[in-house]
Structures are given as structure tokens and as C-alpha cells.
């Protein structure tokens, strides 16, 4: 079969474009008519109340779940209209840090980071070991190579998950509630790390979070999902939205953190 790539016209800055996206589990619509773009090198935050579909949106953005309608474009290429080989290639550029960390519990930290490297690159074992120790040192975990996930604290697990997510030098990094369950200091450190990765590597970063502090310190742009109306109610720069959004819910949340 001829591999076809469907290209759509998008903003030249756009890394990810979400167009008319409707998400549903079976007949149960979670969110409809989502339209926003994530620019290359941006830190983009997805906000909204519990259960409004933030994790579901992330699953759509990383190709784990197909849209009920609409599309998700990466550099203008529609993921779900691409051939399996192209989908695989697009996915290779993603790194994901799951809400629960999702480290493989039967593998050590080093093995967790090494597994994707072993599967997807032709690196020698020695090179892999060097990359693994580099990635762990980037997240402040050098010396913990031989530890199992159950032997380290929650904050360290989140950072180890980040080390695994950046193992393959992804072009886009996704985080689901990176600071959930962390103390303010650990969560600040994680924010700093995220900022640093963007500045140093130019990675596009998509984050689901409720933390107002994170939103104003790291976000370039945000999208605000609403559980009641089942659609997005705002997108743009968080400071501008806080001061100028016509929607009182958005202003209230960004001023006081209430949803």
C-alpha cells in the first residue's frame, strides 16, 4: 500500500494544531469543538476542573486515542490520517510523563530509561549507559541508577519519569499533572527543570496542571476546558486572559485559583 501523508495548511509557527476536535468515550462526549494551536518551543498548559477531560485531551495529543471527530496535526500532518509507519515516526518524537509516573516497577531507574533507547536506537550498550546516566543526572538522580521505583520518593519518581520521557530527545514533551502530590519545593524544582529543557533544547512542552504558580511562571499559552459546557472557553496567554478575558470564570480562576 502506498503510504500517504495528508498535509493541512497551518500557521508556520504551529507545532501542534487541534482542529474541531471532539473527544468521546463511546457515545459519551467529553469535550467538543476544540480549536487551538501549540507553537513550536512553547510551554502550553491545559487547565480545567477535575474530570473535564484534560487527561483525555492529552491522550488524543499523544496518539493514544482517536478523535470522535476533527483532527490533530503535527507540523500540518494529520496523525490519524497517516500510515502506521508515519504514525510510529511521529510518536517517536513524543515524550510523556504520566499522571502516576508509570515507571515500570520491575525495572531499575537505569533500565526504565534504557528500555526506549535499546528499542528505538542502534546505540551500543556503552553509549546507552552514558545516555542513561546523563538523563538521570539532568533530573538530579545520578547515583540512583540501580534503585527500583518503589525505593524512591514520589518526587524522585516524577523526575525519573521525566528522565525516561526525555530519553529519546523528544521534540514534544507532555506532562500530566507533574506537580500533583508533590510538596511546593519539589514542584518548583520540576517547574524549573521544565523551563530549562525548553530554553536549552527548544522542546515544545504541553502540561496539564492546576497550579496557578506554575501557570504564571512557565506558561506561554493556555487552553481552558469547561466541564459544564463541554468545550473550551478560552485560549491564549495566561496573564492577558487574567486581566482581559471577557469570561468571568476564566478571570476568577486565574486570579484566585477557583474553578
Amino acid at each position: 500500500m502506498e503510504a500517504t501523508t495528508v498535509l493541512y495548511e497551518t500557521d508556520p509557527d504551529a507545532h501542534i494544531s487541534v482542529q474541531d476536535l471532539t473527544m468521546a468515550y463511546g457515545d459519551f462526549v467529553i469535550q467538543r469543538d476544540l480549536n487551538f494551536t501549540i507553537r513550536r518551543g512553547d510551554i502550553f498548559i491545559i487547565m480545567g476542573g477535575s474530570g473535564c477531560g484534560k487527561s483525555t485531551l492529552l491522550r488524543h495529543l499523544i496518539g493514544l486515542k482517536a478523535p470522535a471527530s476533527g483532527r490533530v496535526l503535527y507540523d500540518g500532518i494529520s496523525y490519524w490520517e497517516s500510515s502506521p509507519a508515519d504514525q510510529q515516526r511521529i510518536k517517536r518524537g513524543f515524550g510523556m510523563s504520566f499522571q502516576s509516573g508509570a515507571l515500570w516497577s520491575s525495572l531499575t531507574l537505569a533500565e526504565n530509561v534504557a528500555l526506549p533507547l535499546g528499542e528505538y536506537t542502534d546505540l551500543t550498550a556503552a553509549d546507552i549507559a552514558e545516555v542513561v546516566s546523563l538523563k538521570l543526572s539532568l533530573v538530579g538522580l545520578s547515583g540512583f541508577e540501580e534503585f527500583y521505583p518503589s525505593e524512591i520518593s514520589g518526587g524522585m519518581q516524577k523526575r525519573a519519569a521525566l528522565a525516561r520521557a526525555i530519553a529519546l530527545d523528544p521534540a514534544i514533551l507532555f506532562f500530566d499533572e507533574p506537580s500533583a502530590g508533590l510538596d511546593p519545593i519539589s514542584s518548583r524544582r520540576l517547574d524549573d527543570l521544565i523551563l530549562e529543557l525548553r530554553v536549552s533544547l527548544g522542546t515544545t512542552i504541553v502540561v496539564v496542571t492546576h497550579e496557578l504558580a506554575s501557570i504564571f511562571t512557565i506558561a506561554d499559552n493556555v487552553v481552558f476546558l469547561d466541564a459544564e459546557t463541554r468545550t473550551m472557553i478560552a485560549t491564549g496567554n495566561p496573564k492577558t486572559l487574567r486581566d482581559e478575558s471577557p469570561d468571568p470564570r476564566v478571570r476568577r480562576f486565574l486570579n484566585r485559583g477557583e474553578i
Binding site: 543526572s137 545520578s142 520518593s153 527543570l193 530549562e196 536549552s200
Partner: peptide
């Protein structure tokens, strides 16, 4: 990145 990688991490005990 090298600054980050060589930063001495806060001592963490497990």
C-alpha cells in the same frame, strides 16, 4: 544542560 547535569543534587536519602 551541562550545568544542570553536573549540579550536585540535594542530598536525598532512601
Amino acid at each position: 544542560m551541562m550545568t544542570l547535569a553536573t549540579a550536585v543534587p540535594a542530598k536525598e536519602d532512601t
